[in-house]
Amino acid sequence: MLSFQLLIAALATGSVYALIAVGLNLIYGTMRLLNVAHGDLVMLGAYATYWSFSLLHVDPLIAVPFVGLLAAGIGAAAYFFLFQHFLRTGSLTDRIEANSLLVFFGLSIAIENLASLAFSGNPQAYEYLDRVIRIGSASIVGNRLAALIIALCTCIGVLLFFRLTTLGLAVRAIIQSRDAAEIVGVSARKTYLLTFCIGFGLAGMTGAVVSLYSQIWPFMGFSYTIVGFVIIILGGLGNIVGSIVGGLLLGVLETFGVAAVGANYRSILIYGVFIAIIIIRPQGLFGTKSTAR
């Protein structure tokens, strides 16, 4: 069972999962907003890459950062038009989790259905780097390998950003304690805007990466959002490193689980892990009791 081949496959799935979860968790950690529309940004990113490849013949690997920037722009717009008002209005921030969930849920449904109107409901895909590459005893399709490398590099990049830069430090400070961070001069508002851009941008990039190897369709986002939720619960809400570890772990669990019981049970497996974690260890694998609020 524990073959090198499966491990590579698990890494390929897990690295993309980690990328999804990091963006989702960043926004939750800083603002306590659960972005239910995260998966729909993934979908939009995937379509953007698909169109730029099939209409403009842009190499998908080159498109990845641009799609990320585009999605970051959408994030900034969402912040300015919807959530700035939100974070300012007292009656809304009092119940920010419940209210923001509803807003994101509404956005998600609207985006999905608009996309279905605009792009048609049929799944699309393109062929890119579909040669099989051998690594030792294992083999992997080229586009999967590319996705793995991009996702891992981006995750590491995000980690380094948070460890090494002042801006990253500011975001971490806000996550730890918003009030204390504001007292020492961190602008909460600027940090929020930055977080929205990074979070949405990462979602868009994930979409570009996913489109390399998988079919895309307007309602694909929901399952990515769910996967993201599973991981951030697994790794701990607001814990960025936890998300990356959790993503890789879920990739391993899914790949080995599917190999053991069959692909039909994939969804049951993921949601089963999810419900088990919430019930047995809601503070996450690495969390302590006090961080579970």
């Binding site: 939750y28 306590r32 659960l34 239910v36 989790e97 419940a98 969930l101 769910i226 939720f229 599973v230 619960i233 809400l237 969804s267 049951i268 949601y271 089963g272 999810f274 419900i275 919430i278 019930i279 809601p282 503070q283 579970a292 609020r293």
Partner: peptide, 26 residues
Amino acid sequence: VGFPCFRVRGPYFVILTFGLSEFVKY
């Protein structure tokens, strides 16, 4: 399902309801 997850506050319940319906569906 409410019994265990109402013991913790915050978004856990919401995420749970989101996943539970899909879990039962599949």
